[in-house]
Each structure stands twice: as structure tokens, then as C-alpha cells.
Design a protein around this nucleic acid. Structure first.
Length: 567
DNA sequence: TATATGACGCTAGG
DNA sequence: CCTAGCGTCAT
């Protein structure tokens, strides 16, 4: 590349912008470590329009390394080199000189990428790499650049309300425990609950209380406190304290700390989830609570009237506001993981649940099929239970954990699972197929051939082997859903640009996309987004056929906390 | 004595 | 099942 020296600064910037833009849109292969960061830098530095970077294409060695070994992605170029080198010459493992030399010489970048390309090809991952992952990179850079507007004053107000309430709950907790202690410390709480108050011994019909996973100590988690809350006032107070504290520390103070120049800019990480999902950090915007937190605020105006309480509802998503003249538009794949389970299992009864009327509630339909009762007479509790059972099977969790979710005995939970699997035998066939495939090949694959290596599938250790089996099944479902959502991001992005619509993707919540849209274009964008996400062509121009239709629900609002369904 | 780091437990989202 | 992030507690 040539850079002229005798140029005015403005001309120079223009020159660089033009040249780099031409380079980026050219057919020449460009290898770039951390391509997402480069694109973001270029957008900011040259004030480029996001839409102009969507067709940039580069290849990034780190993303390639992650696809090849998603559980241990390389974090630096050195690690990429090590990864290739280790696998190619396993015998001469200890020769560090060659490695460091290779890393220092960036002229090796092309060779490394060529090696990676060959490995991707051999592993049948090249198509996924070039046509999905690398096309996603500019979209992620755009999301980082765009950011989200947050009203800091709203957050500060929420923080004040929370602080007041936390103080009250704290003093109530000290009273009921009989002394002060660090309420946020699970270690101290454990001694108070079990050594001082002996609540575990008083527990009704000797329910099994959860243990901590590493040290096998008595747990103080939510499921335990729920079981203890009728024996003593303290557990309930701790539960409330934790909810308030979580909200304040993570979703008020934590978010406030991430606001820069009036907007929230999260980092979107392409390679940190082994399942192929995206993650966001600083802040993790994917975990901002959906459900509002109900708090009872003691009225301080009329203390004479005694027990007057006001209940306030705090919604963590409320302070997220669309820019002037814009609205948020959220598009949500309805129970996509469950639909994929039906697709993979090919179970006729399960498939039937997703065919026909879109307005039907799938969990009501499923409960009806399972229990042999008409959909009209399915109870809400039965519906919830069905949902839990389905997700437990998909996640591969055993009867013990399902029992804690449902608050029933392990034997009952086991009964639900086996009854479900008897009624929908395709599901068992699918899970067994996953496990067998994994045993035979050492890995499993998603619908777009993304893979995960699971060596523990042959472990002699029962716990490790069982965990590996759950991971194998879960990866196929969760990873395939991630694949489909990535395709949606790419195709919707492309279509919006082609139609010249002013809609920008802000957030991806695994099975949901949130856009910011100019008010006058909401209707057009809604149409485009829904059509594409529900289209049979979404999966590689229809080359891959799903056994079930995908359904998308749309909601629109000025605040992320107040979104209303929209046909 | 003061502060940095890593393991652990818990909980928000999906 | 898999993420991020906050808080304790030991080192």
C-alpha cells in the first residue's frame, strides 16, 4: 500500500478513506486479526455509514480458530499459531523457538490463514466460516458503533428507591436473625440458617436441600430459601434482599458505569461461546431483566397512619429509550429451540403441535397431546410443568434438577420425564442418535455443520460422561438455534440496506433481534423482518428444509421496557 | 498493612 | 445446558 506524503490533512484523510474502502469492498482476500475491531475503528474514524460496511469481507484467523475448536478459542495470534502447530507436529511439542519466531514474523499471517482455510475445508466448516461467521463480523461492529440510548436519571432514581428498600430489608433481617451479619455473604448466611436456626432440620417432610457444586456444602440458593420460607421470616427477607441487590449492583450501578457520551456501548463477542452463540459484555445487555421487580415502598409521608405501603414496579429495561423520531422493534423467534427439537426428533405428535394455526399456544397444545385432554381444559400449572419438562429434556438436566424447578420430589420428576418420552418417542431417538454420533466421531454438529468436540463422551468417569452426553444433545439444539439467528441477522441486514430502510440492529438476545427504526418506517421494517425470518429460504435459500415452520412475533415501543405486540 | 487475584456461590438472560 | 457480572473469602 502506498501513502502519499505531501498532502493536506483533510485530503489525506479522504484519500485513506477512499483507498481503504476500495480495498475492503474489493475481491482481494484480506486477512485481519480482530477484523471486528478494525471495522469499528474505521467506522468511527472515517464516520462511515454502517450500511456501507455490511458487504465488507475479510477473514479473521481468531474466528477460524474458534470454529475449529470452540471450547478453546485462541485469544492471540500466538495462540492461533500454537494451535495449528500443535496439531500438525505433535511429536516435537517443546520447540518454543520456532513458535516465537513464527509469531514475531507477521509475514506468516498469510501462511497461517492458508493452513486454517485448509483445516476448515477438511472439517467441513468453510462454508459456515465464510458465509455466516465472516459476514456477521461487520454487523457486530455496527452494533458496537451504534450503541443504545439510556436515560441516566431514570437509573439514578431507581437506584435511590432500591437503596432505601435495601436498608429496610437489611434491618428486618438482622432483627429476625437476632444479630447483625453480612447479608451478602452466603458463608455467614449458611451458619445463621443451619448452625444457629437449624432450619434444615425443621424442614417439612425432610425435603432434600441442594448442596453447593464444588464443596458440597449446604446451599443457600433460591430453591433452598423457597423451601425454608414458611419456617422463619429470614429466608424470605434474604430472597428479597438478593433481588434488590442484584438489580442495584448489576442493572443500575453496573449499567451507569458503562454509559459513555450518553449511550451504552456493549462489546459483542463473536468467539466466546462454544455453542456458537454471541455474548455481550461491559455490560452484558443480554441479561437485563425482562420481568419488573415489585417492591413495597413504605410511605414516609403519613407515618401516623401506620401500615400504609405503596408498591412500586421497577423495570430494568425502562430507561432504554429509542432515539428521537425512532422506535424499538423487536423480532422474536417463538420457542425456536423447542421447534428444532421437534424438527430433529421427527416425532409425529410433536410436529403436529407446530403445524396449523399459528395463534395456538404450543405448550397448551403439547400438554393436551400429552395428557389426552382437549386444549381448552389445560390448566396453567400443567402448561408450566410441560414447559419445564421440555426444557429440562432439551438441556439434558436430570430428574433431580427438574425436581427443584418444579418443587416436587425427584421420583415425581422422573415420572414426568419418562411419561413424556413414552408419549413422544422421537425425542429419545434423537437424544440417543446425538450421543451415538458423538461417541463414534468425537464431535456433534448443528444444522449448519458447526461442531463441538466432546472428548469426555468416552470418559470412564460417570459424572463426566453424563455431562458430555448432556452437552452433546444440548449443543445440537442450542447451536442450531444460534445458527438460524445468525442467518436472520445477515439476511435481514442485507435486505434493509437494499431497500434503503433506516433500521439498525442494536441487540441480539439469542432468539430475538432488537432494531431501532425511524417511526415512519416501522411498518415497512416489520414486514421485511417478519417475512425474512419466517421464510423457508432463511436456511441457505431453502437448501435445508425444516420439518416445522419458524414463527416470529414482533413488538414495538419507545422504551425497551414498554414494548407492545404488533401484528 | 494494603491491595491484587482466583475460586466459589448466586442469579439475570436465553 | 451456557453465558456475564457481582459479591465474599482465602491467598
Amino acid at each position: 500500500m502506498m501513502f502519499p506524503v505531501n498532502m493536506e490533512e483533510q485530503d489525506y484523510t479522504t484519500y485513506c478513506r477512499e483507498m481503504l474502502t476500495q480495498l475492503m469492498t474489493s475481491k482481494v482476500s484480506k486477512v485481519c486479526l480482530d477484523a471486528q475491531e478494525l471495522i469499528l475503528t474505521m467506522i468511527s474514524h472515517f464516520s462511515l455509514d454502517i450500511t456501507s460496511v455490511y458487504n465488507w469481507s475479510m477473514v479473521d484467523p481468531k474466528v477460524a480458530g474458534w470454529l475449529l475448536n470452540p471450547d478453546h478459542p485462541p485469544n492471540t495470534f500466538t495462540e492461533v499459531v500454537k494451535m495449528l502447530w500443535k496439531d500438525n507436529h505433535q511429536e516435537c511439542d517443546q520447540d518454543a523457538d520456532a513458535t516465537t519466531l513464527l509469531c514475531q514474523d507477521l509475514s506468516q499471517l498469510l501462511d497461517v490463514m492458508e493452513l486454517l482455510r485448509r483445516r476448515l475445508m477438511d472439517c467441513d466448516l468453510l462454508d459456515l466460516y465464510l458465509n455466516v461467521e465472516m459476514k456477521l463480523t461487520p454487523i457486530l461492529a455496527g452494533m458496537e458503533y451504534h450503541g443504545i440510548c439510556v436515560d441516566p436519571q431514570r437509573l439514578i432514581n431507581m437506584g435511590d428507591i432500591l437503596k432505601k428498600r435495601i436498608g429496610m430489608v437489611e434491618s428486618d433481617a438482622y432483627k429476625s436473625a437476632g444479630h447483625r451479619f453480612l447479608l451478602s455473604s452466603h458463608v455467614q448466611l449458611r451458619t445463621v440458617l443451619f448452625d444457629e436456626l437449624h432450619l434444615d432440620e425443621k424442614c417439612e417432610n425432610r425435603q432434600k436441600l441442594a448442596r453447593t457444586s464444588v464443596n458440597n456444602l449446604k446451599s443457600t440458593s433460591e430453591s433452598v430459601l423457597v423451601k425454608l420460607q414458611h419456617l422463619h421470616p429470614l429466608p424470605k427477607l434474604v430472597l428479597e434482599y438478593r433481588k434488590l441487590e442484584k438489580m442495584k449492583s448489576t442493572y443500575v450501578d453496573g449499567i451507569l458505569a458503562c454509559i459513555k457520551e450518553g449511550k451504552l456501548t456493549a462489546t459483542w463477542d463473536h468467539t466466546s461461546a462454544a455453542t456458537g452463540r454471541l455474548t455481550s459484555a461491559n455490560p452484558n445487555i443480554q441479561s437485563v431483566p425482562k420481568q419488573p421487580l415489585e417492591i413495597t415502598e413504605a410511605s414516609n409521608k403519613q407515618p401516623a397512619e401506620g401500615d400504609k405501603h405503596e408498591t412500586t414496579s421497577l423495570c430494568a429495561r425502562e430507561p432504554y429509550i429509542a432515539r428521537e423520531g425512532c422506535s424499538f422493534l423487536a423480532a422474536d423467534f417463538q420457542s425456536i429451540e423447542f421447534r428444532l427439537l421437534a424438527h430433529f426428533s421427527k416425532d409425529p405428535s410433536l410436529l403436529k403441535v407446530f403445524q396449523g394455526d399459528d395463534k395456538k399456544d404450543v405448550f397448551v397444545e403439547l400438554t393436551s397431546q400429552w395428557m389426552n385432554v382437549p386444549p381448552g381444559s389445560v390448566q396453567t400449572t400443567d402448561r408450566e410443568r410441560t414447559k419445564r419438562v421440555v426444557y429440562s429434556i432439551m438441556y439434558g438436566v436430570g430428574p433431580e434438577k427438574l425436581a427443584t424447578y418444579l418443587n416436587v420430589s425427584a421420583a415425581e420428576a422422573k415420572g414426568f420425564i419418562s411419561s413424556f418420552l413414552r408419549r413422544f418417542p422421537g425425542v429419545s431417538r434423537f437424544t440417543h442418535k446425538c450421543i451415538e454420533e458423538c461417541k463414534a466421531k468425537g464431535h456433534v454438529r448443528t444444522i449448519l455443520k458447526r461442531w463441538r468436540l466432546i472428548p469426555n463422551i468416552k470418559s470412564p468417569n460417570f459424572f463426566l460422561k453424563s455431562q458430555a452426553e448432556r452437552q452433546a444433545v444440548n449443543f445440537v439444539v442450542q447451536g442450531s438455534a444460534a445458527d438460524i439467528c445468525k442467518l436472520a441477522m445477515i439476511l435481514v441486514g442485507k435486505q434493509l440496506v437494499e431497500r434503503g430502510l433506516r433500521a439498525r440492529l442494536l441487540i441480539q438476545l439469542h432468539d430475538e433481534l432488537v432494531f431501532e427504526v425511524a417511526d415512519e418506517e416501522v411498518d415497512s421494517v416489520r414486514g421485511v423482518v417478519k417475512d425474512i425470518m419466517q421464510s423457508d429460504d432463511l436456511l441457505c435459500d431453502g437448501k435445508i428444509k425444516l420439518q416445522v415452520p419458524l414463527r416470529v412475533s414482533i413488538s414495538v415501543g419507545k422504551s425497551w421496557g414498554r414494548m407492545t405486540d404488533s401484528e
